[in-house]
């Protein structure tokens, strides 16, 4: 009589498919955003290769520049650029979600809270471009 309650009943857990993130756009967006981190690593690797080539001399640096012009590398960089911009935009748009600022009982529009981030992005980009290009 006692044997039926020997083990506590296992709690029921629905099995989630490995491809759960393909089902809906917000989920897919989440995974794409997370995958943008691979592009960050690609950029770091490429930058370190560049630094290494720069240290080794003008000929080696020219070879590195030629490598950058290869279609496969250009394609990777184009894809990476889009992923990184996707990362940047989603990152900057998090601020209004994290801070719900109210002024006079009204919530400050998201765009206004995210705006300083975009301004900082613009300033940083112009600064880097100016330093690199003023040659």
């Amino acid at each position: 009589m006692s044997s039926s309650i020997q083990h506590p009943p296992r709690s029921y857990r629905r099995r989630v498919s490995t491809y759960w993130w393909l089902g809906r756009w917000p989920y897919l967006k989440f995974i794409l955003r997370e995958l943008s981190s691979i592009s960050v690593t690609w950029f770091v690797v490429q930058t370190l290769l560049q630094i290494s080539a720069l240290s080794r001399g003008p000929t080696q640096y020219m070879e590195f520049e030629a490598w950058l012009r290869r279609p496969i590398v250009l394609s990777l960089n184009a894809v990476s650029f889009f992923f990184i911009v996707f990362h940047a935009v989603t990152w900057f748009n998090l601020a209004p979600k994290a801070m719900a600022i109210r002024v006079g009982g009204k919530r400050v529009p998201s765009l206004l809270i995210a705006a300083p981030n975009y301004l900082a992005w613009l300033v940083a980009s112009v600064a880097v471009a100016w330093i690199v290009l003023r040659g």
Binding site: L74, N77, A88, F92, V128, A129, L133
Partner: peptide, 30 residues
Amino acid sequence: GGVAAALLIPIHLFLFGLAFPLGWLEAPGY
């Protein structure tokens, strides 16, 4: 890292990965 990547990598990648190799802008010399 997220902040640094968002603020700085787009312009770096645009210049060195696209604009210079494709000849949109003149690359700085060695």
